[in-house]
Amino acid sequence: MKKDEFQRDLRALLVRIPKEEQIEIMKDLEEYFENGKLDGKTEEQITASLDSPKNMAKELLVSYRLEKAEATATTGTIFRAVWAIIGLGFFNLIIVLGPFLCLVGVLLGGWTASVGFIAAPLLVLANIVIFPGIFEWFDIFASIAFCGIGLFVAIGMFTATKVLMNGFVRYLKFNTKLVKGGLTHVER
């Protein structure tokens, strides 16, 4: 592969990364080619040693996504980071997707419970409207108590969500430092 071709392919794959970062990446690459040529290498030799533009772009995308997720850990940024990491290979799918689904499960369960508790008085009211015959004061009081518990659970979940999400981003970062990516095609 010639240099122009490599650069064109890489640029096309980096569209999701901000412009100024793209420019910086292309500049670094340009410098790499120049130095390689000074070293007496042909463009083909240099592109061959660089691995495919695809793998390079994947790595760059993972770093970018992780950075985003670290800056603001929202469901969207974390999901995109997880997706980018899974793109690196099958091994990553296993070590990232498992904990991710677990995280989603815990958060979903906690929030569902708290919302259900808080809505308990409403459910009792609905019950009264639909079956006026079986009214019990006990239902009202119990549902108000549940509503209170639900509020506490929600407050707890709010903190737990923050902590768990930040923790998960740290886990993702830790993994990308250790785990493969871009090194697949170099075994001698």
Binding site: I25, D28, L50, N55, L183
Partner: peptide, 11 residues
């Protein structure tokens, strides 16, 4: 090594 993976690492 795959030389292409060093640059992302440096960044």
């Amino acid at each position: 090594i795959s030389e292409g993976s060093v640059y992302p690492l440096l960044r």
